[in-house]
Design a protein around this nucleic acid. Sequence first.
DNA 1: TCCAAAGTAGACCCGTGAGTTCAGATCGGA
DNA 2: TCCGATCTGAACTCACGGGTCTACTTTGGA
Lengths: 214, 214
Amino acid sequence: MSAAGTGAGEPSVRGRIDKRRAILDAAFAVFAREGYTQAGVDVIAAEAGVAKATVYNHFGGKETLLRQAFAALADDALARNLAAVDRLTERGGTRARLEDVAVHLLTCYCDEKSRTMRRLLVAETPRFPALVDIVQEQVGDRVLQALADRLARLSVAGLLRTPDPALAAEQFTALLTAPIDRRSRLGTRRVPATELRATAKAAVGTFLAAYGPR
Amino acid sequence: MSAAGTGAGEPSVRGRIDKRRAILDAAFAVFAREGYTQAGVDVIAAEAGVAKATVYNHFGGKETLLRQAFAALADDALARNLAAVDRLTERGGTRARLEDVAVHLLTCYCDEKSRTMRRLLVAETPRFPALVDIVQEQVGDRVLQALADRLARLSVAGLLRTPDPALAAEQFTALLTAPIDRRSRLGTRRVPATELRATAKAAVGTFLAAYGPR
DNA sequence: TCCAAAGTAGACCCGTGAGTTCAGATCGGA
DNA sequence: TCCGATCTGAACTCACGGGTCTACTTTGGA
């Protein structure tokens, strides 16, 4: 369950699938704008162009709505982050490759849906502790693992010296996300592309100074 | 409960100052536990051992309560973080000094009040955008500035090579906080002291590999 | 000792929002 | 064309919580 695979136009287990999507999209938009508690199911229904009863037909209630919306968003975020990591091949200059990945990872990170998801996640941690585990295991850890794998391959190719690829991956993302969190005021402000690129460059610079070949 | 340190018996500008403190402490505790919207003023009053009307006498309403609680917490956090940075002197081994500061900064960062403050901050960002600016300018930026100053002095003393101390400070804290955010599941899980120390050591290791004297 | 400020308990008003119900409109497939 | 499943709109219940008010008690300073 939870996976929200939807995939290609499934015959749908029950009724209109498009309504489902519309509701989930609206739910996320409203949650994002107003926060979970403040968000009204009436509003979500209206924004989805659907009757309130329909919302309760599809999902049991507000909680399920949040969980499902999260699942969908997490899937999306995972795919995009993995695509970014996939750009880290052994061809071309190591620095340029790393910077390219860095910029793409940061772009994912700064995407409005990603930012909103993180904010909601942190906000609702006390009420829904399970969400943190799901998102972190299903997205964060996997992306980190994929990145560690790539770094290990670069290391084998003699392009890096990373005795502990998992640690290196963690620190690589740390050098990216933490400064961006600060510069975006915790996701409040839009970070201009040039500043984003500069942060990526600086992170890669420090990373290579520490882990680059001698 | 809610303790309320009572502080030293101040003469107090107006009447019972201890009630004020008790209310603020209780407010923070309840906000922390239930979130701003869910928190009930009745509950806060009860937890402070005070009548609801008293809360409204001291503070105008719920909003003021949140803002004041934040201000108090931010002051506290600033002092503790600056104290941690102050430990970064030029005496002794650079690595040991840096690790000492790193551990102390992380201890501040992982303190329950700090964690809760950050969580509330992120959660209520849409409703109270000003809070982010206040906290970041009054605490984050100042701590970073203080750290940059220390790093610059170490650089002058030939113990580091930091052409841009502000950037170095930002990356130093990035290497500390981001991994801890992950390991603590966004502040959900307690991080054991040994893991905390290991993270500090790893961060300093990478930092010195990049910025240490050749 | 006395009194005004501060605090207390509890009822009270009022808006809001989750979730339900139901009669009727709509739609999709056979 | 018809049937059953789905959707709609609107009204309704119910609980909760912010904020006010009032009549009464406590407290601390002169």
